[in-house]
């Protein structure tokens, strides 16, 4: 390497400076998840569900935050991953958890390509409407194809094999939660690489100004479609994890409601920031859990109030708010990169 000039960015300095913050971030997430294991041994099912939904919200962030797609139908990809893993487990006798997650990822990626091909034809309001139509169609399809999906009763009776043949998905949900942490860490590591790639820079560019990206000599559609496939794969992993942990797949997994909630979680945490997506999911689901226990009818009111508060105080979400707070307390940070 012949550098006769100061480095243009942290990434120019080498692998460690480029990914240092990601490594720290993943370590913090890992430590917090493990702490959850010991602090809330009776709530591992809830924690596993949070991770499963967090994967959906992370995946949503890839298309909303990085590519500027407007979608209220993203749970379609999550649900398709869950159904694919569930159906294969039940019908084809494939029970290895890693294989089932891979199948969920593949189904999600395929569905992501289809959904992307549909949604990327338009943008703005028509795109939003198409996304809702898409998830409704998938849900109706799942409802009608009851021979495979169990219709409105859902799928049940899946018997995934123990992880490595040793750790069964037991009643206490310990294996499931540790498996969830493993998947989360792997997904975060993959996303750290993706998010710092030339490809992700192009997606960000396409979000801001598609005409400029084409004038740079890059076709936008194939780039965004690829991001949609990656996003679908991660949503599919989330869905497959949900199937493994609960051994149930229902129509609520492919619902408009879950799609809308995941968008609320993303907005709450901060669009475009992977750790914001995680934080938003945890905050939303914790509040949901606690308030629902106290008053099952009004938890949505509390979420609504929380959303309004976040929008007023920190319009860029929890992650953006923390960013601003840090800047206010420690002055402008000298780095120019995200």
């Amino acid at each position: 390497m012949t550098m006769r000039h100061p480095p243009l960015s942290d990434a120019a300095l080498g692998i460690w400076p480029a990914y240092r913050r990601d490594v720290y971030g993943i370590l913090v997430v890992f430590a917090a998840s493990i702490a959850g294991y010991f602090m809330f041994p009776d709530s591992l099912a809830l924690l596993t569900r949070i991770v499963s939904i967090a994967l959906l919200v992370l995946s949503l962030d890839l298309v909303v935050g990085f590519c500027g797609v407007a979608t209220l139908g993203h749970a379609a990809l999550y649900g398709i991953g869950a159904y694919a893993a569930g159906i294969v487990c039940l019908r084809a006798g494939i029970t290895d958890p890693f294989l089932l997650v891979t199948i969920g990822a593949g189904a999600g990626a395929g569905a992501g390509l289809v959904m992307g091909a549909v949604l990327l034809r338009t943008h703005g309001l028509p795109q939003l409407v198409l996304s809702i139509a898409f998830v409704q169609l998938v849900q109706e399809g799942a409802n009608k194809a009851s021979a495979y999906t169990g219709g409105s009763d859902g799928l049940a009776g899946m018997m995934p094999a123990p992880i490595f043949g040793m750790f069964a998905f037991d009643l206490w949900g310990r294996s499931a939660y540790l498996f969830a942490i493993f998947l989360l860490v792997v997904v975060l590591a993959i996303l750290a690489v993706v998010a710092r790639s030339p490809f992700a820079m192009l997606c960000r560019g396409a979000k801001e100004d598609p005409v400029r990206v084409e004038a740079l000599g890059v076709s936008i559609r194939p780039v965004l479609l690829r991001m949609y496939a990656i996003s679908g794969a991660i949503a599919g992993v989330g869905g497959a994890l949900g199937m493994l942990a609960t051994q149930v797949v229902g129509l609520d997994g492919v619902s408009f409601e879950l799609s809308a909630n995941s968008l609320v979680m993303l907005a709450l945490g901060g669009v475009g920031s992977l750790y914001g997506a995680l934080g938003g999911t945890v905050a939303f689901m914790m509040v949901e859990h606690m308030v629902a226990a106290i008053n099952p009818f009004h938890w949505m009111t509390v979420i609504g109030g929380l959303m309004i508060g976040v929008v007023l105080v920190a319009p860029r979400g929890l992650a953006g708010g923390l960013d601003d707070l840090q800047r206010r307390m420690f002055g402008r940070n000298s780095e120019t990169r995200r």
Binding site: M1, T2, M3, R4, H5, P7, L8, S9, D10, A11, A12, G14, I15, A18, Y19, V193, V194, R196, S197, P198, F199, A200, M201, L202, L216, V218, P222, V223, R226, I230
Partner: peptide, 20 residues
């Protein structure tokens, strides 16, 4: 190389030198 996923943006020293 603009659409590569498994690469680090800013990690190509030839591109960096030319940009500079």
């Amino acid at each position: 190389n603009a659409t590569r996923i498994l690469a680090r943006f800013g990690g190509d020293s030839a591109a960096n030198d030319e940009a500079y």
